[in-house]
Amino acid sequence: MGFKLLSKLLVYLTASIMAIASPLAFSVDSSGEYPTVSEIPVGEVRLYQIADGVWSHIATQSFDGAVYPSNGLIVRDGDELLLIDTAWGAKNTAALLAEIEKQIGLPVTRAVSTHFHDDRVGGVDVLRAAGVATYASPSTRRLAEVEGNEIPTHSLEGLSSSGDAVRFGPVELFYPGAAHSTDNLIVYVPSASVLYGGCAIYELSRTSAGNVADADLAEWPTSIERIQQHYPEAQFVIPGHGLPGGLDLLKHTTNVVKAHTNRSVVE
């Protein structure tokens, strides 16, 4: 069995187990497998329904001669939608809004960016022009300005110390501490036991640490421990890039980060 097929099978099995364990909360999309990078042309966006009122959005972007996937989250909030992270750029984010209108038909009224990198804030200006209120932590807003990236308009308070959590509509926002970046936030959907790890969490097929220019490698494993301790009931975990899975993604990420750190020390 090929690795790609095995990865998709694991996603399907995880979703099936969740649907059985929580039949009222989960209505997993039966329309197909989780979209992969090879299936999404740059400039297009796919939506994948995880649970009743919960979707991931998947886009792709060219970077350094390669094409990478990027995940975000959409959560229903009454007759409105909360968006977590842009679709990595203005063109993708405009396509995301169009796809949401086509498939869901509810307005996106608020959006949260989970850290300051372009795959999370690139497209904020498109959201703002569409009347979406954009939010991020003060740290993310400051770092985005320093980096020359787009800056969300509103500040999220109460997320300055490791372990801080605040309720934001249908989700809980959690600051686990520094990891992929010093400002990275985690998003949890309690009604569906869905954990969105953003770039602080890796997919299972990833074996290298990737972009760690703004990471705190020493603190990252401790931050992941905080996530595990705060959300032990999480059933569906979405990484910032690639295929979702279960809580095993947290341990896998820790292993990859520690291996990278150990290699760096040896070198």
Results as ranks from 00 to 15, higher is better:
residue 220 W to Y: 07
residue 18 M to H: 13
residue 212 V to E: 07
residue 213 A to N: 11
residue 90 A to W: 08
residue 99 E to Y: 09
residue 43 G to V: 04
residue 84 I to P: 00
residue 46 R to V: 10
residue 72 G to L: 01
residue 146 V to H: 13
residue 200 A to M: 09
residue 161 S to T: 14
residue 213 A to K: 12
residue 105 G to T: 13
residue 168 F to C: 05
residue 210 G to M: 05
residue 128 R to T: 12
residue 83 L to V: 09
residue 52 D to R: 10
residue 89 G to Q: 00
residue 129 A to E: 13
residue 34 Y to G: 08
residue 58 I to V: 15
residue 129 A to R: 11
residue 45 V to Q: 05
residue 113 S to V: 06
residue 193 S to Q: 14
residue 172 E to S: 04
residue 165 A to L: 15
residue 240 G to L: 04
residue 173 L to Q: 03
residue 142 R to M: 13
residue 88 W to Q: 00
residue 150 E to L: 04
residue 238 I to E: 00
residue 138 P to H: 09
residue 70 S to F: 05
residue 53 G to T: 13
residue 155 S to Q: 14
residue 243 L to Q: 15
residue 229 Q to D: 12
residue 99 E to Q: 14
residue 233 E to A: 12
residue 79 D to I: 10
residue 186 I to P: 01
residue 246 G to K: 11
residue 89 G to C: 01
residue 169 G to I: 04
residue 247 L to A: 14
residue 188 Y to E: 00
residue 67 V to F: 15
residue 4 K to P: 06
residue 149 N to T: 10
residue 83 L to C: 03
residue 109 T to S: 13
residue 75 V to S: 03
residue 7 S to H: 12
residue 45 V to C: 03
residue 42 V to M: 08
residue 239 P to R: 01
residue 25 A to G: 14
residue 69 P to S: 15
residue 128 R to N: 13
residue 239 P to L: 04
residue 147 E to H: 15
residue 238 I to G: 01
residue 90 A to T: 11
residue 194 V to P: 03
residue 44 E to H: 12
residue 81 L to K: 01
residue 76 R to P: 04
residue 15 A to D: 09
residue 134 T to E: 00
residue 186 I to T: 10
residue 86 T to Y: 03
residue 181 S to V: 02
residue 215 A to E: 06
residue 109 T to R: 14
residue 118 D to Y: 06
residue 228 Q to P: 07
residue 170 P to N: 15
residue 132 V to H: 02
residue 190 P to I: 05
residue 36 T to Y: 12
residue 22 S to N: 10
residue 36 T to L: 10
residue 145 E to S: 13
residue 53 G to I: 08
residue 75 V to W: 01
residue 30 S to N: 14
residue 199 C to Y: 07
residue 243 L to P: 10
residue 256 V to W: 01
residue 120 R to W: 02
residue 249 L to S: 06
residue 139 S to R: 11
residue 90 A to G: 12
residue 175 Y to F: 11
residue 106 L to P: 06
residue 185 L to G: 02
residue 10 L to W: 07
residue 24 L to Q: 12
residue 66 A to L: 15
residue 94 A to L: 15
residue 79 D to Q: 10
residue 65 G to S: 11
residue 260 H to C: 09
residue 241 H to Y: 06
residue 114 T to R: 02
residue 50 I to H: 08
residue 215 A to W: 03
residue 90 A to D: 14
residue 234 A to C: 03
residue 135 Y to P: 00
residue 157 E to R: 12
residue 243 L to C: 08
residue 152 P to Q: 00
residue 18 M to R: 09
residue 150 E to Y: 04
residue 239 P to I: 01
residue 37 V to K: 13
residue 225 E to G: 11
residue 87 A to D: 00
residue 135 Y to N: 04
residue 262 N to H: 10
residue 107 P to N: 11
residue 178 A to I: 06
residue 147 E to D: 10
residue 222 T to H: 14
residue 35 P to L: 08
residue 108 V to Y: 02
residue 104 I to W: 00
residue 23 P to W: 13
residue 172 E to Q: 06
residue 105 G to E: 10
residue 118 D to H: 07
residue 94 A to Y: 15
residue 209 A to Y: 05
residue 220 W to F: 05
residue 122 G to H: 08
residue 55 W to I: 01
residue 193 S to A: 13
residue 38 S to Q: 09
residue 137 S to V: 02
residue 199 C to I: 02
residue 175 Y to P: 01
residue 204 L to D: 09
residue 192 A to N: 07
residue 234 A to D: 01
residue 235 Q to P: 05
residue 178 A to Q: 08
residue 43 G to P: 05
residue 53 G to E: 10
residue 65 G to V: 07
residue 28 V to R: 09
residue 121 V to I: 09
residue 6 L to Y: 15
residue 221 P to K: 08
residue 106 L to T: 08
residue 50 I to T: 06
residue 185 L to E: 01
residue 182 T to V: 12
residue 26 F to M: 15
residue 56 S to M: 15
residue 79 D to G: 11
residue 157 E to G: 12
residue 80 E to T: 10
residue 101 E to T: 11
residue 44 E to Y: 08
residue 224 I to C: 00
residue 45 V to P: 11
residue 38 S to M: 13
residue 247 L to C: 06
residue 61 Q to Y: 08
residue 205 S to P: 08
residue 207 T to Y: 10
residue 116 F to S: 06
residue 34 Y to D: 07
residue 135 Y to D: 03
residue 155 S to H: 09
residue 207 T to E: 15
residue 264 S to K: 13
residue 256 V to F: 06
residue 244 P to H: 04
residue 167 R to A: 12
residue 114 T to G: 01
residue 264 S to F: 10
residue 246 G to P: 06
residue 136 A to L: 03
residue 206 R to C: 07
residue 200 A to L: 10
residue 223 S to Y: 04
residue 227 I to S: 04
residue 42 V to Q: 12
residue 163 G to K: 05
residue 125 D to C: 02
residue 120 R to M: 01
residue 129 A to V: 09
residue 218 A to Q: 14
residue 130 A to I: 07
residue 12 Y to D: 13
residue 237 V to M: 00
residue 211 N to F: 07
residue 5 L to T: 15
residue 3 F to A: 08
residue 123 G to P: 04
residue 155 S to D: 13
residue 129 A to P: 03
residue 168 F to W: 09
residue 32 G to L: 11
residue 54 V to L: 06
residue 95 A to R: 12
residue 199 C to T: 02
residue 75 V to E: 03
residue 210 G to D: 08
residue 53 G to Y: 07
residue 73 L to I: 07
residue 12 Y to G: 10
residue 68 Y to Q: 09
residue 77 D to W: 09
residue 143 L to N: 06
residue 266 V to W: 13
residue 124 V to N: 04
residue 101 E to R: 14
residue 256 V to T: 06
residue 124 V to I: 10
residue 66 A to K: 13
residue 261 T to S: 12
residue 167 R to M: 12
residue 164 D to V: 07
residue 12 Y to M: 14
residue 203 E to V: 06
residue 51 A to Y: 08
residue 169 G to D: 06
residue 153 T to S: 12
residue 166 V to M: 13
residue 77 D to R: 03
residue 160 S to L: 11
residue 215 A to P: 04
residue 191 S to E: 13
residue 59 A to Y: 05
residue 11 V to L: 08
residue 34 Y to W: 15
residue 39 E to K: 12
residue 6 L to M: 13
residue 92 N to C: 01
residue 267 E to D: 13
residue 70 S to M: 06
residue 177 G to C: 05
residue 69 P to F: 11
residue 76 R to S: 12
residue 72 G to S: 03
residue 61 Q to L: 07
residue 26 F to K: 15
residue 263 R to Q: 15
residue 16 S to D: 09
residue 143 L to M: 10
residue 231 Y to V: 01
residue 131 G to E: 07
residue 232 P to G: 11
residue 153 T to I: 11
residue 194 V to C: 00
residue 139 S to V: 13
residue 11 V to D: 11
residue 185 L to Q: 02
residue 237 V to C: 03
residue 166 V to I: 11
residue 66 A to H: 15
residue 120 R to F: 01
residue 2 G to F: 15
residue 75 V to G: 01
residue 174 F to T: 01
residue 31 S to R: 10
residue 209 A to W: 06
residue 151 I to P: 04
residue 47 L to I: 12
residue 46 R to W: 09
residue 183 D to V: 03
